[in-house]
């Protein structure tokens, strides 16, 4: 998932170096399957205990998991649809809105110039 442009790890804090292993696409895939496995395990766990639900719907096995999956996907797709309607260029409201100003700031790369521009 994450692309690592150069794979260099020197100059990174030790903690970050520890984590940089996950950057490799192979590891990412492994992580994905790990997640899948955990999910299946959790879904199966529903059969192992007595569920205390408020509503009848909750009694269905792994309903929460399925619901979460569907709801998440629905949110994303609805949001994508919404974006078609509401998306505008950054200087839509006025030329100097905060959104465009952020960008200018980002371009100036404060660390590189050694300044401390932010309070």
């Amino acid at each position: 998932m994450t692309n690592h442009p150069n794979g260099k790890t020197e100059g990174m804090p030790p903690l970050a170096r520890l984590l940089s292993g996950f950057d490799k696409p192979r590891n990412v895939t492994r992580l994905f399957y790990l997640l899948l496995a955990v999910c299946i395990a959790l879904g199966l766990a529903d059969f192992l205990y007595h569920k205390h639900g408020y509503f009848a719907v909750e009694e269905f096995p792994a309903i929460y998991g399925l619901f979460g999956f569907v709801a998440y996907a629905a949110v994303i797709f609805l949001a994508k649809g919404l974006r078609l309607i509401i998306r505008r260029p950054e200087d839509y409201y006025e030329p100097f809105a905060i959104d465009t100003e952020d960008e200018r700031a980002a371009g100036s790369d404060p660390e590189a110039t050694g300044g401390k521009p932010h309070a």
Partner: peptide, 10 residues
């Protein structure tokens, strides 16, 4: 002149 950055200190 636009402030060169957000949150410029006084």
């Amino acid at each position: 002149q636009m402030a060169h950055s957000l949150g410029a200190a006084a």
